[in-house]
Each structure stands twice: as C-alpha cells, then as structure tokens.
Amino acid sequence: MTEPADQPDIVYRPRGRLPGTRPGAHRGREAGGLGTFRDQVPFLRMPDARRMDVRATLRDPFEGTYVRRFEARTLVEVWALLDLSASMRFSGEADRMALAATFCTGLAASATRIGDPFGLIGCDAAVREDVFLPASRGRGRAAEVARRLAGTACTGTGAEGMAEAAHRLDGRPKIVFLISDFRWPEALITRVFASLSGYDLVPVVLGDAAESEGLPDWGLLELDDLEGAGRRVVFMRPSLRRRWIAREAERAETLRRVATRHGRPPFRLAGRFDPDAVSRHLLGT
C-alpha cells in the first residue's frame, strides 16, 4: 500500500488553543508578531516597532502607542491507538483490520501533509512493540504505517494493553484516535478512557452491518468467538433477534456515554473509509 496522494485529507481541529511555540497549522495560545490577527496592545506590553498600529495609535486620546498582536500557529501530535485483539479479525461487510489499516494510513497522510507528527501504538493484552511507531513528521510516514499494519496478526485474547498505552504518551498536546470494535467489558472501557482523558480523545468504532442489521428473523447461525471461546450454533428467531439488537444498542449507548465524559463522541466506521465523513464528525464535535 502506498501513501494515498489522491485521497481527500481528514480535516481535524484540536479543541481550544494549543500551548507551544513550534510552528504549525493550528491556533496557539501564544501571541507574537506572525500569524492570525488577534488584537492591539500597548507598545510597552510587546515592544516590537515592526508591528506598530498607526491607526490605533492616532485614535488614542492619551497618545499611547499600540502594536498589533497576532495569534501564533502551532502543531499538535496525532496518535492512533489501534486495538489488535482477536475480535479485530472479524470480516463481514468489510474486513475489519483492513478498514482500520486504511483509516490509520489516511490519518497519517493527512497529519504529515500539514506538518503534524503522527504516531501509532498497537495493543492487545499488552502494547505491541512490533506495531509501535513514535510520532514523526517525516515524509513517507503513511507508507510506513501501511507496511507495518499489512501483515499484523490479531491474535490477542484481550485489549488490556490499551490502558498501558497512555504511559507512552507524554509531552506536547495530542489528538488521540482510539480505534477498536470496543467489544470490551465496561470496566475496561471506563479504565482506558479515563487513562486518556488528558488528551483530545476521538473514539473510532469499527462496526459492521452483519453484526446486527443483517441478522435473519429465522434460521441457524454458526457463531465463532474470535477471542477463543469456540464455535456454537444458535437458532435465530424474532424474539432473540430483538434482544440481540437491543443489547447492541445498549452497548453503543454505554460507549457513547463513557466517551463523551472523557472526550469526543464516537465516530462509527463501517463498510468503507470515507475521509469526508470523518472530517464532518471532527469539525462538528
């Protein structure tokens, strides 16, 4: 897989103004001589004669001297925390892991094109060192993400490593995309989101129509528990289908409630990767 040069970028906007002085594409807290116009301040507060505002100076009845102050632009680190537990092997309307890899590759390309560093952490029961890439703005980062994920096996029996991943994140401000099907116990969901609540957290839920909407009213279904509990045959009937769909809705509501408490509401990624849909979600939350 190569970097998707002809694919629309994922457009994202950090919440609030960012600290830091490294030049980038996002609104910063610092003020200086370059950037977007912010306000005028007395010369003594920012003694830079190059930024003198002649009109404001002439309008001041007390004959004060004013300079223009500008809003600095800075960068933000973008990280993808990817669930690599066995349930990510699911394939229905789409191959779940292939969809996740496409999303991560597109996100890496979008971030590095505007100068933001991108990093990747893969987790199952622990942090996977073979799927760890430190944040970098280097060209070709998207291609490296694609290569790293191309042959990645999802064999772990849990996602507890997600709670450990927060220890790999420190320093400058970050947007963290948490990518999973979130088929975890509620206690683990709460623990992982709490550990990442200090960052701008964006949950990305990998869903599939085959898990609920595609269920028949009647028939025999062979279910395979990818986490290791084996296979079993279930006789599907309308009452069971209703309970199944209700449980899925309850699980989604639990995730939404926990997510909005610690970050942004979840984005559901199903079927195919649509950068424009991701951008609309990010700019609207």
Rank of each mutant, 00 (worst) to 15 (best):
A5V: 15
D9S: 15
I10C: 07
V11W: 09
R13S: 12
R13Q: 13
G24I: 12
R29Y: 02
A31Q: 14
R38G: 08
R38Y: 13
D39Q: 11
F43V: 03
R45C: 03
M46F: 14
P47T: 01
A49P: 12
D53R: 01
R55A: 03
A56N: 00
P61F: 09
F62G: 13
E71M: 13
R73S: 13
V76Y: 09
E77L: 11
S87T: 05
S87D: 03
A94S: 12
A94R: 02
D95R: 12
D95M: 05
L99D: 04
L99S: 02
A100S: 06
A100D: 00
G106Q: 05
A108F: 00
G115M: 05
P117H: 04
P117K: 11
I121Y: 00
I121D: 00
G122L: 01
G122I: 00
D124W: 03
A126V: 07
S136K: 08
R139D: 09
A146C: 03
R148T: 10
L149D: 00
G151A: 06
T152K: 06
A153C: 10
C154F: 01
G158I: 04
G161T: 04
A163R: 09
A163M: 03
A163T: 08
L169W: 06
P173C: 04
K174L: 06
K174S: 10
V176D: 09
V176H: 06
V176I: 13
W184A: 02
A187P: 06
I189T: 13
T190N: 08
V192D: 00
V192G: 02
A194E: 12
A194D: 11
S197T: 05
Y199F: 14
D200V: 09
L201A: 10
V202Q: 13
V202L: 12
P203L: 01
A210K: 11
S212H: 15
S212V: 13
S212C: 14
E213N: 15
E213D: 15
P216D: 09
G219T: 08
L221T: 08
L221E: 07
L226R: 11
L226C: 10
E227C: 10
G230H: 10
R231C: 08
R231K: 13
R232V: 11
V233Q: 15
V233C: 14
F235W: 14
M236V: 14
P238M: 06
S239M: 07
E248Q: 15
E250R: 15
T254N: 12
A259Q: 02
P275C: 13
V278E: 02
R280T: 13
H281L: 01
L282F: 10
L283T: 08
G284A: 15
